[in-house]
Design a protein around this nucleic acid. Structure first.
Lengths: 203, 203
DNA sequence: TAATTCAGCTTACATCTGTACGCTATTTTA
DNA sequence: TAAAATAGCGTACAGATGTAAGCTGAATTA
């Protein structure tokens, strides 16, 4: 095994150890360097061979979480293309993601309102991706004017993320309920936006 | 000054010192007992004369924040009664609250997704108050059936809280923009819910 | 007035933290 | 093959943390 390869491997095990530590009771700002090192099976000081800081690791984790989220979007789009209804498919895909990648979504949710400006900004960037994509999609499928499509997309993303937050602490049964409710709420938003378009056209 | 009075006074200064510490870079789980004691001007060990734990202080802070929020609701209701539009008045009142009680709202927002189950539950309780009150209000003013009114209320509260989160990091100018946007989004929801009612009636 | 209560203090300690320094063994380069 | 680079380690230290133990002086009670 080459030196470079081994280094990447250790880096991976640090990242994965950190994700495992980020359960429902720990946030990025509450895990210590030593703790991560211990979980990764390296000496505390070896940590510095891979990250300058524990904050640098934090940003890496946010990036990785964002990446996972973007893959989720792609997956949802593929499913939508093969029929099933946009709202239904999107929400179901999202809920599956949350269930399967518990700690990943929790990280984003927590750092979204967390104590580090840098982390908050990083999460916001990821959410913005969602907004932009959903706005574009809405315009191209419904012909809504930009301002309305954008408001609609933003509202929908917020509602879905809020529902995701609820789902994190919920039982499997409650999760189904949360999913159903948010679907109905998304329909409210969609219909309300359509109506706003009609009103805008009448002026 | 009586002994009891003095004790209450010290307790107050602990609580207020803690609120001051909870700026944009600190959360309940990241402030230390010693730090709070220092800020309150007492010896670390004296803290225990007032709270069993720092967690007990945390719950007290969440309760106080919830109280402030409920007072806000009452204020909004009073303003609505004297005319001005429900959505407009509510959002404006909310935004004023956030601006004036920065750290109080931030606490609720942060602990809503925080690392302590107890804190999360405490915040959820406060949010539920909002939902119940708004649902009742909606039913009594629009005659919407319970299930729709409840979905609508929940969606509105989520959107307003999300907007509040944005407003926390925003400049005065951006805050106005956030307020305008969320008002439009709330109208989407309201109109969408009305439409759902009409559809439900047609069956 | 004398006895009791108790808010707040000082001292002390074990535990954890981040990180500086220098060593070693192995891979990479020349 | 000899020299250089480097991932990982052990040791060490200063600082912070929660909290136990016991004291003091002032307020309260009897």
């Amino acid at each position: 095994m080459s030196r470079q390869e081994q280094k990447l491997r250790t880096r991976r095990s640090i990242i994965e150890a950190a994700f495992l530590l980020l359960d429902e009771q720990r946030s990025l700002s509450s895990i210590s360097l030593r703790e991560v090192a211990r979980a990764a099976g390296i000496a505390p000081t070896s940590f510095y061979r891979h990250f300058k800081d524990i904050d640098e690791l934090g940003l890496t984790l946010v990036d990785e979480a964002g990446l996972a989220l973007r893959q989720l979007m792609r997956q949802a789009r593929a499913r939508i293309a093969s029929g099933g209804g946009v709202i239904n498919t999107s929400v179901d895909t999202f809920m599956e993601f949350i269930t399967a990648n518990n700690n990943v979504f929790r990280l984003l949710l927590r750092e979204h309102t967390g104590t580090s400006m840098a982390f908050r900004a990083a999460v916001l960037r990821e959410i913005k991706h969602f907004n932009v994509e959903l706005t574009d999609y809405t315009i191209s499928t419904t012909g809504l004017p930009y301002n309305i499509a954008n408001l609609q997309a933003e509202a929908m993303v917020k509602l879905v993320f809020s529902a995701g937050a609820e789902a994190l602490d919920a039982s499997e049964e409650q999760k189904l309920n949360v999913a159903e409710r948010v679907k109905l709420q998304l329909r409210f938003v969609v219909n309300g936006a359509l109506q706003a378009k009609a009103e805008q056209a009448n002026n």
